[in-house]
Design a protein around this nucleic acid. Structure first.
Lengths: 337, 337
DNA sequence: CAGGAAATAGTGATCGTTCACTATTTGCGG
DNA sequence: CCGCAAATAGTGAACGATCACTATTTCCTG
């Protein structure tokens, strides 16, 4: 389906004014508040607007007001589904009267950062929310003019908003597994450019240390099923843990596959946990123990900072908790040795 | 991380001109082509631009040129991961000199259509590519001004670009399964608001008819794992097919779960196929036979129509085929009865 | 009904860029 | 070194809205 509407120019505020028999400024007032106008005037403008099917030219408005009401969200490509987070962020932005542009960029942190500066520098958006990792100190490079950048993921100095990278459910998972008798763990990390991957890895190591557990080690992966598959196959029989904590569900699925290929039962011999509560992994046998994320909530809360920084407006944050563990069949008591 | 750059106004073309000792028009020329300027003039402007860290105000430019160079892509929310399609579409748009705004809208077809009209009507974008179902005949409602709308999914009169809804791999899957000895099939459809779901259902029914197969029926679902799970459980033992063709991998995972719960082996008793080549489903046992999509290519090709309609420019389409079947362990010979 | 404040409406400048012209400089043949 | 075309640069209007004022009308009070 392809349609092109009539070629004639769109009507302007002055044409509406002429048709309604008022000045352009009166129409301008009408557009913004609709108060302080006589009922008669108002209805004449109403009629003119309808007759001409007038809609204000937002480009011209932006030009004069120096406000675009638009925000950009920088998304990572392909690594996970950012749609739900984007949705939460967009909803919050709408509440504060902003529209949102999503920009997905391939390439590394540097490429993303470059593109972000480009977006921020042309006055097209009032702020940028980066849901993908960007270089630190990027704010300093911003051209003058007040475009604000909020990074939801950590920057390289490990500062960050935090919620996105909150790894506490991983600690809860491990503690419960310890109650189940597990002593020997293994962690397959995600792409460490992501704060969430770094945080989960750190939480794993910290918990091993704190509870005096054994660890078959940590393998740095890339969020892929293959990374989980390869990591498990890289272990010797002696190293084999009784619990594999994977960075996400995809990694977990690869790990489970490798465990089965090695003749091990899940959860009989080895328990496996994931992250993200991937719908496919809920059903396939064994149902995967995972961490359910309120992605809309996380997106919303990330956007709150940006909205506040730009307009000072404080929106209602998403109700906590934003993550919780869902126990399924892939976890169970540690095997007797 | 939150940063605010200096509050001072961004430099304008006139300030650059003054610093370089030329007229604003000369700077304007410099910005566009950089030809037809004396080397001396050019380097003076270069220096001024760098010193002021000048970037053109695209809002002002759009105002004068009546062109924004921006396109919008309307995305469905949450049903599947549109990131890769968006990426292909964005890449194609960049090649033609457009930037892309992604708009995800919740709600039904009507709500989406309404929002789309809003976006198209304010002159902020030159075109809209709808990757989510919208109401038919929407072009007629568009305000004057030449915003173009291209719908990649079918409209309600079942016209459409087609590639997105190409169900031919489903036919290939069924024919192969027939070679394997399968005679009795079952289809769990996706949300029929989507052209792809309608096309797969139609292809299933047509193939059953053409090859004279038995069908345990078609259940209309919603792309969810639960819909696959419930659909299988709704069958009596007598109705049970030897092959389940699911609308996508998530649905397939639900179906597999239900089959296992009923004591059936996959693929020993029943073969199952999905769609989308979901990464998690590749690993979990049994590896799911599915249809791999070149989502970037599909997104790209959808964008081509829009770009062509707006600028007349014809970009290189993605190489075919854009979909192909990946055979894995969830399919096998029909059981002897 | 005069007078003044409040409510309502109008006028012209302005945002930062490009467009359509006009003006100036350069280069070159004779 | 004149004259003229080509190359280069400058001037002012325009895009479509809002802002900062000023002007007019309405309403109320005494």
């Amino acid at each position: 389906m392809t349609e092109r509407s009539t070629e004639s120019r769109r009507p302007t505020i002055k044409e509406v004014a002429r048709l309604a028999g008022v000045s352009h400024q009166t129409v301008s007032r009408y557009l913004r508040s609709r108060n302080g106008l006589k009922p008669d005037t108002l209805s004449r403008i109403d009629a003119a607007v309808n007759e001409l099917n007038y809609r204000p030219n937002l480009v011209a408005r932006s030009m004069r007001t120096r406000r675009t009401g638009r925000l950009a969200v920088l998304l990572p490509t392909m690594l996970y589904n950012p749609a739900r987070m984007l949705h939460g962020a967009t909803e919050a932005a709408h509440e504060a009267g902003f529209s949102v542009e999503a920009v997905s960029v391939i390439g590394d942190t540097e490429a993303r950062t470059e593109r972000m500066l480009e977006i921020a520098g042309t006055g097209q958006v009032e702020g940028v929310l980066a849901l993908a990792p960007i270089s630190p100190g990027v704010g300093d490079q911003l051209p003058q003019g007040g475009t604000i950048v909020v990074a939801a993921d950590f920057d390289d100095q490990m500062r960050g908003i935090g919620e996105l990278a909150d790894a506490s459910p991983l600690v809860a998972v491990m503690e419960r597994l310890v109650e189940y008798g597990h002593r020997r763990f293994f962690h397959v990390a995600g792409n460490l450019q992501f704060a969430s991957a770094r945080a989960r890895k750190a939480a794993y190591l910290e918990t091993v240390e704190r509870l005096g557990l054994e660890s078959a080690g940590v393998v740095d992966g890339d969020w892929s099923g293959k990374s989980g598959y390869d990591a498990v196959h890289s272990l010797s029989d002696e190293q084999m843990p009784t619990a594999v904590v994977a960075a996400n569900d995809i990694v977990a699925s690869g790990a489970i596959r490798a465990l089965i290929e090695r003749g091990l039962d899940v959860p009989g011999d080895v328990s496996v946990t994931g992250w993200d509560n991937n719908e496919a992994c809920q059903y396939l046998p064994p149902g995967l123990t995972s961490v359910e994320l309120n992605l809309e909530g996380l997106g919303r809360n990330a956007m709150l900072s940006l909205v506040k920084a730009i307009s000072g407006r404080e929106l209602e944050p998403a109700p906590r908790p934003l993550q919780h563990v869902v126990w399924r069949e892939s976890t169970g008591p540690a095997p007797r040795r």
